[in-house]
Design a protein around this nucleic acid. Structure first.
Lengths: 131, 131
DNA sequence: TTTTACGTTGACGTAAACGTAAAGCTAAAC
DNA sequence: GTTTAGCTTTACGTTTACGTCAACGTAAAA
């Protein structure tokens, strides 16, 4: 539908709850390249989507450099197709990290339980032993 | 059993695959406090466990400051008990982040699929349309 | 006794991802 | 016409988590 919708920088910053400084920084790092209207940056739907990708990457713990790589794959320069393989690798990596994290969380909960039980046992011992 | 086992700093660094610099840094940040034998640091089983906690926290995306807080809770100073509530909060936080990340990964995979299909469709169109 | 290995304390350097002014342009509102 | 709102570039500052020397101590091995 409204594929031609455009956004100002403050507009985007509000929608994504980030600062305009961050958005300009992403551009300076080669992740975004909005059109201009005079001096002003005009962001397209495509830029919007790219920004969404950037933030998603951040949540997954990717560096901006990594995201840039993937974004450039999503924006193939006519001659070279998108390299699914590399994207899938990154996704796989992230998933494995998550796997490890879930394991870490489980362990923490188990250890907390153990600790709690230990403390309770000690308390019982105290009560029993106190004259 | 061997609760009195001790470790040198390079010993720990090898076991955990981190640098001695990192270990000293954790100490300077108040996360570790090994005994000394003259100048040399002697790490106990407790220090070993603390270090394991630190690294686990790192994998979960916690800052050293956050981990320090939790570690201090694990080492209650006689008068104050461990505050499970806070630890559980942190764990809960981490788990929610993981939830979001899993969602992000799903979306990425779906979008990759869509993209792939789109490309294939375009290719078919090209083949059909070419005279 | 001189390497060699391992440890110590400074102290400065670094990378990533922005934060935080400063100073100026521009267009609409009052 | 000047205030206000929003945008621009430039540039230095900040935080976290160490890395990377340098210069020195100690103790065992060759």
């Amino acid at each position: 539908m409204n594929k031609n919708k455009t956004y100002s920088i403050s507009d985007l910053s509000q929608r994504f709850d980030i600062t305009t400084r961050a958005i300009r920084f992403y551009e300076s790092e080669g992740l975004l390249s909005p059109n201009r209207e005079g001096q002003k940056r005009i962001y397209s739907k495509k830029d919007y989507i790219t920004l969404k990708l950037i933030l998603r990457g951040k949540r997954l713990g990717w560096s901006l450099a990594e995201s840039r790589e993937l974004i450039q794959m999503y924006n193939p320069k006519q001659d070279n197709e998108i390299q699914y393989q590399k994207v899938l690798e990154k996704v796989h990596e992230s998933r494995e990290r998550l796997q490890q994290q879930l394991h870490d969380i489980e362990i923490m909960l188990v250890e907390l339980d153990e600790h709690e039980n230990r403390v309770n046992t000690e308390l019982k011992g105290l009560t029993k032993g106190s004259p």
